[in-house]
Amino acid sequence: MRNKYTYVWVSLVVLVFGIIFIPKIIERIKTGTIIQHDRINLAGNDESPGFIYLNNEKRKVPNFSFLNQDSLLISQKDYEGKVYIVEFFFTTCPSICPVMNSNLVEIQEELRDFDDFGVASFTINPEYDTPRVLKEYAEKYGINDMDWHLMTGDRQEIYDLANNGFNIFAAENSEVPGGFEHSGLFALVDKNGYLRSRADDFGNPIIYYRGTISESQGENDEGEKQEISILKEDIKKLLSE
């Protein structure tokens, strides 16, 4: 008899759940908000990269203010009205940074005619990477776009910007070549300061673009494919918005 009553009770709970919650779930599916409250998701279309949401809010570039290679104070306000790429690097990096910045110089040249395109490069070794050092680095790599700023400043502020503001990993590590490690990812920002991204083949946002593989290389030894081509495509889409 107990099993019978238990079965009836469970059935009643399931019925009540269905009456209360299933209509809400269906409504969230219809409106495309089924995962906005649960994790990062993408809202966009085939014509333009989508916005990145976290806790139902569009992710925006945090405030920052640092000196660039010309010893000028640069903040997020200097990028208003521009589509730009964000990277974290350091000038003495012996591994991925040269590839990353060579890729960015290639993008710089392809988008040379666009006044509303820029790059924000933040050093994760600010003690060594002074404005003078950054200036020499820019000359070495052919970084000459007026809206490409290589920035240095307070160490903790830069690391907070990387790890908390953008969630792009950066850390000091004496056991790795160069003494610092970072992810080698590029963030894409629209003219209003919002982070934008395309979705992968499964409909999930890629969030950031892989900057450590060149177009000519195609893919690395781990089978990861280059994303410079799709980054270029998405920049041009945002420039036309």
Rank of each mutant, 00 (worst) to 15 (best):
K82H: 08
S75G: 01
Q76C: 10
I74H: 00
F66R: 08
Y84Q: 09
F90A: 08
I85S: 03
P62K: 02
T91I: 10
D78A: 00
V83Q: 01
N68R: 07
K77E: 15
L67H: 11
Y79H: 09
V61I: 12
L73Q: 11
N56K: 11
G81A: 11
F64W: 00
E57I: 00
E87N: 15
L73H: 10
Y84K: 05
L67K: 15
I85R: 05
G81R: 04
N55M: 05
Q76F: 03
D78N: 15
V86P: 01
L73I: 13
Y79S: 07
S71V: 00
V61F: 06
K60N: 14
L72M: 14
E57M: 09
V83T: 12
K77S: 14
V86T: 06
F66A: 04
N56T: 13
L72D: 15
D70G: 11
E80R: 13
F90M: 01
F64K: 00
P62W: 01
K58A: 07
Y53H: 00
E87H: 05
Q69R: 06
V86K: 04
Y53L: 12
N68T: 08
Y84H: 10
G81E: 10
N63P: 07
I74C: 04
P62Q: 06
I52F: 03
F89M: 15
V61T: 09
F66Y: 08
I52S: 03
S75A: 07
L54H: 12
F66E: 06
L54M: 11
D78G: 05
K58R: 13
G81P: 03
S71Q: 10
G81T: 09
L72Q: 15
F90H: 07
V61R: 07
P62G: 09
V83H: 05
V61N: 01
E80K: 13
Y79L: 00
L54V: 12
F88S: 02
D70K: 13
V86E: 01
Y53T: 03
L73T: 12
D70N: 13
P62V: 00
V83A: 05
V83M: 10
K58D: 03
